[in-house]
Amino acid sequence: MDGQKNKRRISIVTGTHGDELEGQYVCYLLNRKIKEESEKLNGIVDVYPALNPMGIDTITRGIPGFDLDMNRTFPGSKDGAVTEQVAYDIVRDLLGSDLVIDIHASNIFLTEMPQARISEETANSLLSFAENLNIDLIWIHAAATVLRSTLAHSLNSQNTKTIVVEMGVGMRITKRYGEQLVEGIFNVMKQLDIWQGEAERLKKPIVCKDEVDFINAPVSGVFLPCVTHLTKVEKGQPIGDILEPLTGNILSRLYARQAGTVFTLREYPIVDEGSLIARILIEGGRNA
């Protein structure tokens, strides 16, 4: 949608993984509001609801027919297989946006609180936008852990600012998260002068870097949590059990090693040794 007066451009992309649906509701709400209040539009809003349309249509996380994670194919190749050509064209299309928001919904295994993920090297240029996105958390990743074949990395490395948002869980839509993020996107559009009005800090996100503790399954089994998502836990508090239905035994009881908030929690009960169970935002993460 083009508000004509200002040529600043924000791109909202989602649907890279066909099982991540939270962004569908965001695109719907965004489009609806822009149509209803089109007089406030003062720039370009490009909405890409389905980078992997066949995946969404067929409940397939990867690219159907190739069993391939699209977000490991960027920047693609003009001359490669069809998946690489698509990745190449997506990048070409998005380059030049003033800001790209790449919305993900974790996967079917984990529930996430609304958060932005940005790398250390892009933090300076992205933080001011991420802070206005009305999210709960900004997680800054160390350079060494950045995956270089993602859309966000491809765009950021070609000077198109891109923020990855993760929220909710795969195969579901969490209405309140969608509504929360849309409010944040309009806020950032104001910041970019694409939407009329003054940007404001709606929700103060916690900014964290290394203040995250990962809890992985020490054994394979059936995981049953004894906390809910976003619970504040004390050091030593049980997080859940890994059970063995065949014997009726508890194979492992998992505890919080640090006090903090469970911002990622295992949703899918079957776990392999190593499966991620929870991430805890350790108390003391600084406020933005």
Partner: peptide, 19 residues
């Protein structure tokens, strides 16, 4: 289970996810 590719996990991480 999680459809990850072992040949995208090197050098690996002993305390990380399964692959």
């Amino acid at each position: 289970t999680d459809n990850t590719d072992i040949n995208r996990m090197f050098p690996g991480y002993g305390l990380g996810e399964t692959t």
